[in-house]
Design a protein around this nucleic acid. Sequence first.
DNA 1: GTCTATAGGTGGATAGAC
DNA 2: GTCTATCCACCTATAGAC
Lengths: 195, 195
Amino acid sequence: MAQPTADTGRRALDVAERLVQTRGFNGFSYADIAEALGVTKASLHYHFPSKADLGQRLIERYEAGFVETLAGIDRAQQNAAQKLRRYAKIYADVLRANRMCLCGMLASDYATLPKPMRERVRHFFDENERWLVRVLDEGRKAGQLAFKGAPIDLARMIVASLEGAMMLARSYGEPPRFDAAAERVIAELEARKSV
Amino acid sequence: MAQPTADTGRRALDVAERLVQTRGFNGFSYADIAEALGVTKASLHYHFPSKADLGQRLIERYEAGFVETLAGIDRAQQNAAQKLRRYAKIYADVLRANRMCLCGMLASDYATLPKPMRERVRHFFDENERWLVRVLDEGRKAGQLAFKGAPIDLARMIVASLEGAMMLARSYGEPPRFDAAAERVIAELEARKSV
DNA sequence: GTCTATAGGTGGATAGAC
DNA sequence: GTCTATCCACCTATAGAC
């Protein structure tokens, strides 16, 4: 095992991503990744000199994939409420893969994170808010959504609710708890036909 | 320092509570507590043989204090919306003390917790839901609150939203982010005067 | 109830051979 | 790019003296 030309870097990120999403940044070690890949800890340090380096790369890759997924939603969906449900479904799918949001976990670990990681965590949430603000704004203007106040406040509330609902649903081992909370948040925004 | 008769157990819980609320269960050690109190690690093991014991005691004490605070709200407030705002203010005050909810942090650490701690974390949230369900139910019957569906679903959504909003607000170092999210959740439930 | 001393393990990280 | 070997700091936990 452990071919010299294997893309250990990428595979290490895959394993580390899962570990952070389940156990948090302080809940795993190089030894865990090394064992999963059948390589030594020293090999991992070649690809990621410090754990802080590993963490930064993790967030960058995760955000890139997330942003791409959001772009996919934009391409496929017309209705703003549908877009929001697709957004919530990203979280639901992660939860059913027995994982948490990578950056939700890192937000919990925030006080123990190296500074470069902190900035990248915030950037991830900034991107989420930016996408949501646009969807909310367009949805309201199109008469598909109805809500009071600034889209940014609502966007932040949506992110917070989904992140929190995910954490709670996992603690109970009941993914439907997440679905119920997400649906409550989104349904509240849909323009009533009777108005 | 370290008088023989000092209530080291209680003071250790105080320090450990703060550490868990800021750094998580895997983000502190007996050494951190020992240093803060001016005692040795061995002394702490006399009071809490294992870290799991310490964790259990932490949750039990935290829940007891929380339940007592909720009882205080019941004694003082009449209006259901006011009670909910007082409930949210518990979180807001914790956040402004540069802490997270103890059990919100432990929910993030859930996969790494010893089983007895897991059960107690869930029990804490059960108690929160129980109190919220009663307030929501009474408030709707009294015409002070307006919402559709089962109170339990709404209660769970409220807990999730506040826990999530707390995490996000801390990451940005902006407590008002929590206030805005909490107000959005509660205002949505208030019975409109115009209906 | 607190101490010294220590056990036995794991953490992140590095040097240098291959 | 991966290995062996190793460092040193830190972890939880225990034994036994005071």
